[in-house]
């Protein structure tokens, strides 16, 4: 590549990432602002974090959100992994087209439609809106993301590994737990994390399906934002961002390290002949 294009590449990367990160950075910085006016810098302070700790409503909402996230992500991981297996393994069965449609459509379906339609279902079958309604709604949405992530892992899995296990006398269900699952585990874990953060993130679907006592953090934040920008929101946001960033970076570093170790070992064998 010649110089001019590589300058072009560097510039576009710098501007692109600045665009992605500067707003978040500003948000974080202003969470430490002593002034109540969000845009005027009044010195460094952690008072908004202190206030947050004493705000019972926010703590309750955070707690609900985490429980919804963990439960729905776990359900979604089981269902999504099953869906991925079906799509990968059963090439032909009655209703496969409908099934794959139902797996891919929620990826792009506007949230207002998903949220409203699920609410109407719950009303129709007499299921109370609230905690479990949100859990079911989030499971339904996020299982599709899990399915896509796990499926991309399954595609790269060498099918002869499973055949080898069958050949050596291992029944199919046991083969899944001894061979398939350990090998697709990184995809399954990534799927769970994705499902968890999507659940943590969701405002629209949760708003339709929530009920008394099941206010999630995004619903709470949204109602605060409607009343105006406050440093307290910046503080919650900063905490959320840090938790997720640490989690995601830790996960990727771990998987990267195991990859590097594997490559190192392979190289050592190669050099040893």
């Amino acid at each position: 590549m010649n110089k001019s294009t590589s300058w072009f590449n560097i510039t576009s990367l710098v501007f692109g990432f600045a665009f992605l990160y500067v707003p978040i950075l500003i948000l974080v910085v202003y969470s430490f602002n002593a002034s109540k006016l969000v845009t005027v810098w009044g010195g460094f302070s952690t008072q908004w974090y202190v206030e947050l700790v004493h705000d019972q409503a926010i703590i309750d909402a955070a707690w609900v959100t985490i429980r919804v996230g963990i439960i729905s992500a776990s359900f979604a991981t089981v269902l999504g992994t099953m869906a991925a297996l079906v799509l990968d393994r059963y090439r032909k069965f009655h209703g496969r087209a409908l099934f794959s449609g139902m797996v891919y459509a929620p990826l792009v379906m506007p949230e207002v439609i998903t949220g409203l339609s699920l609410l109407l279902l719950f009303v129709a079958i007499g299921f109370d809106r609230g905690f479990w309604a949100v859990v079911i709604a989030h499971t339904t949405l996020t299982m599709c993301f899990v399915a896509v992530v796990v499926q991309s892992r399954l595609v790269t899995l060498d099918r002869s590994l499973e055949e080898a296990a069958l050949d050596l006398g291992c029944p199919p269900v046991k083969t899944f737990f001894l061979i398939t699952l350990p090998l697709i585990l990184p995809g399954v874990v990534a799927g769970w994390m994705l499902a968890f953060t999507l659940s943590l993130d969701d405002l629209v679907i949760a708003s339709f399906n929530t009920g008394p006592g099941a206010t999630t953090l995004p619903i709470k934040i949204y109602s605060m934002v409607r009343l105006g920008v406050t440093p307290e929101i910046n503080a919650i946001s900063t905490i959320l961002i840090s938790v997720i960033a640490v989690g995601v970076i830790a996960a990727s570093v771990l998987s990267h390290r195991s990859q590097v170790e594997k490559e190192k070992a392979e190289r050592a064998v190669f050099l040893a002949g």
């Binding site: 993130d201 995004p218 934002v225 920008v229 929101i233 961002i241 995601v248």
Partner: peptide
Amino acid sequence: WTSFLIRVYAWIGI
């Protein structure tokens, strides 16, 4: 991975 709502909110202040 970080909240959609928060990222939109960040722009209000800007």
